[in-house]
């Protein structure tokens, strides 16, 4: 039995400890916001926060996570009550096909928590672990910058 906190709720998982965090979230907890794009830690679509740090959930067996605090895109807000970053993505065209969006939002949230510089280079670095094939990144960067500057 593995105990962890997922989006602020205490959860336990009794299956095989080598199951990936991504699959546990999607299949066992039915949180399908995190996506699998590559299974090689390259695209970042499966990004979640573990103890506040962004990670690729496709590269982590859940057995490594006893007591960990997991946050997924679903923790940032719901379609009915969107969080600040999510709203900014909606307003500024940060999401096109949307498949990279959950991971982008998680990476952006991690960036926000470590100071959240709105300089272009800093934003690009923060999002460099997330591939997007639709937007060319411009509107994503503008979305994150808008959300972070709106904070002040």
């Amino acid at each position: 039995m593995i105990r962890l906190s997922v989006n602020g709720k205490r959860r336990s998982y009794a299956g095989h400890p080598f199951k990936r965090l991504l699959d546990v979230l999607r299949e066992d907890f039915r949180l399908t916001g995190s996506k699998e794009g590559c299974g090689e830690g390259e695209c970042g679509a499966c990004s979640v926060l573990i103890d506040g740090e962004p990670v690729n959930s496709c590269l982590i067996p859940v057995g490594q996570l006893e007591g960990a605090k997991i946050e997924t895109v679903e923790s940032l807000g719901t379609p009915e009550k969107l969080g600040r970053l999510q709203k900014a993505f909606l307003e500024h065209g940060g999401a096109q096909c949307g498949i990279c969006t959950p991971g982008m939002l998680v990476a952006a949230e991690a960036h926000r928590r470590c100071g959240g510089s709105t300089k272009r280079q800093a934003l690009c670095r923060a999002l460099a672990g997330n591939l997007c094939r639709c937007t060319g990144y411009k509107h994503i960067i503008e979305s994150v910058a808008a959300a972070l500057s709106g904070k002040r």
């Binding site: 299974g39 090689e40 830690g41 590269l59 067996p61």
Partner: peptide, 20 residues
């Protein structure tokens, strides 16, 4: 796991024992 799990995902490590 940033390297090991890539190989695992590709199906190259099935049946192995892993020491975490």
């Amino acid at each position: 796991g940033t390297d090991l799990m890539v190989h695992w995902n590709a199906g190259l490590l099935n049946g192995r024992t892993v020491l975490d």
